[in-house]
């Protein structure tokens, strides 16, 4: 490419104008895409929550569309004492916990010895879970241990997760598990 004199002059002239007037020569001010409008109360409802991913417990602000009832923006809460608005890469992507086309659209079931998952209805899945929990719990429930001490527990069921629950949901969940007599209760958030 040879030296383009017209462009060269144009460049120099623009640079000189910018320096002299500090950019006042520009007439256009509208941003190309204004995403900030969606944060206004006319369009979205603002709620706070706690990040579910690890034990730090960063505060989040969620903006939910009044029209579609879906989250449109999730970011760190600058007023939260734990993170003061900051988030790690995982926390910053938390919007996709709900809004992600790769999420399964319903419960998946793999029958014993089957190689494939198939989609099932929530009604069927929840009934299956309830029946199996009841069966395992009744079969393995122990009132006393070997030493004759009262324990009222089941060692036949363990709970792992869920990574997508926040603090308050976890509390309700573990309360239900302990009322069944579970002792093996684990959660990913201790990492």
């Amino acid at each position: 490419m040879t030296v383009n004199r017209r462009r060269f002059l144009k460049l120099s002239a623009t640079a000189a104008a910018m320096t002299a007037f500090g950019g006042l020569g520009c007439q256009h001010t509208a941003p190309a895409v204004d995403r900030a409008t969606m944060l206004k109360p006319e369009w979205t409802k603002q709620t706070t929550t706690i990040c579910c991913y690890c034990a730090v417990g960063c505060g989040l602000i969620v903006n939910t569309s009044l029209k579609t009832k879906k989250a449109v923006n999730v970011e760190g809460d600058p007023d939260h004492p734990v993170n003061e608005g900051s988030l790690c890469a995982k926390g910053a992507s938390i919007y996709q916990l709900a809004e992600n086309e790769r999420r399964p659209e319903g419960p998946l079931y793999r029958a014993p010895f089957s190689k494939e998952f198939k989609q099932v209805s929530w009604k069927w899945a929840l009934e299956q879970i309830a029946h199996r929990v009841k069966k395992s719990r009744d079969e393995t429930f122990a009132v006393k241990n070997d030493k004759g001490q009262t324990v009222n527990r089941t060692e036949g069921i363990a709970s792992l997760g869920s990574a997508a629950l926040d603090n308050e949901e976890c509390w309700a969940f573990q309360t239900m598990l302990r009322s069944l007599g579970l002792v093996y209760i684990e959660h990913q958030a201790r990492i």
Binding site: R35, N73, E75, L87, C88, A92
Partner: peptide, 14 residues
């Protein structure tokens, strides 16, 4: 290099 900024940028701009 936690890359929080990189993801936050993508999140805001979708």
């Amino acid at each position: 290099a936690c890359r929080g900024c990189q993801v936050a940028c993508k999140q805001w701009k979708k």
